[in-house]
């Protein structure tokens, strides 16, 4: 479904991502783990079209979509829940959701709103509240719901558990598992590696802008030295 080949992205002279390759199959839940600064967010931003790659290619559903603008990527079927959620705090909860469905026809939009109520019951209570007043957990749910409003065939999430209290981290991972059970295709960046490996079919480990390991959760956990792969003490 998604094939990334040799993707390199630079900020000025900084190579934040070097020659990264990965694939996501239809219906798969793929984790992308690695420490702070490893290039995970850069990779997501490049796929979503916020950043222009310096080299490499992105293919989605057998189409070359390298360098497409974000709104075009969304129409192609790829949605990103950005890091720090970035919900629109000047808009109400329902307005955030409606904006998320800007590309869907109006009739489907109302059906989708009902679907989101079912999926995220706690949001309904805050329906017309300004999104700026939501708690961290609610805001994360809103960010995910907002992305789902475009009916994406691939949903990418960047650090959905970041900055959440442990009990809310549980909620987020339950949600990921829930979406997975509904057959959604997910690509999720997480720092919380063990939790992510629990719910993911496969995962890639990214460090210093490079993919350094790949495998199923059991394979990666089974290596026993995940911590070293992860933070690079093996080379120190």
């Amino acid at each position: 479904m998604l094939e990334i080949d040799g993707l390199t992205t630079r900020y000025g002279s900084i190579s934040a991502l070097r020659d990264a390759s990965l694939t996501v199959g239809s219906g798969e839940v793929v984790g992308l783990i690695g420490p702070n600064g490893a290039g995970k967010t850069t990779l997501m931003g490049t796929i979503a079209g916020l950043l222009k790659p310096a080299a490499g290619s992105v293919r989605f559903e057998d189409r070359n979509v390298t360098g497409w603008a974000p709104d075009r990527m969304l129409r192609a079927g790829v949605a990103l829940v950005p890091e720090h959620r970035r919900i629109f705090t000047d808009l109400s909860v329902v307005e955030n959701l409606r904006l998320g469905g800007v590309t869907t026809p109006p009739r489907e939009r109302s059906e989708l709103l009902d679907e989101m109520v079912e999926l995220f019951p706690s949001l309904e209570e805050r329906w017309t509240t300004s999104a700026g007043y939501l708690s961290g957990g609610e805001a994360q749910q809103l960010a995910i719901a907002r992305a789902l409003m475009s009916r994406p065939r691939l949903l990418m999430m960047d650090e959905p558990s970041l900055g959440l209290a442990p009990v809310l981290v549980d909620v987020v991972f339950e949600l990921i598992a829930n979406l997975a059970s509904r057959g959604r295709t997910l690509l999720v960046v997480e720092q919380n590696a063990t939790r992510m490996l629990d719910v993911a079919d496969r995962a890639y480990v990214l460090r210093s802008g490079e993919v350094v390991a790949e495998g199923t959760g059991d394979e990666l956990l089974g290596q026993g030295d995940l911590f070293e792969t992860f933070v690079g003490t093996g080379n120190g």
Binding site: L74, P82, R86, L91, S150
Partner: peptide
């Protein structure tokens, strides 16, 4: 909605499919 969202966070609005 698109205008208000873009004014707050232009990139996030583009990620939602808003055409800049």
């Amino acid at each position: 909605l698109a205008l208000r969202a873009s004014a707050e966070d232009f990139d996030a609005a583009r990620l939602m499919g808003v055409r800049s």
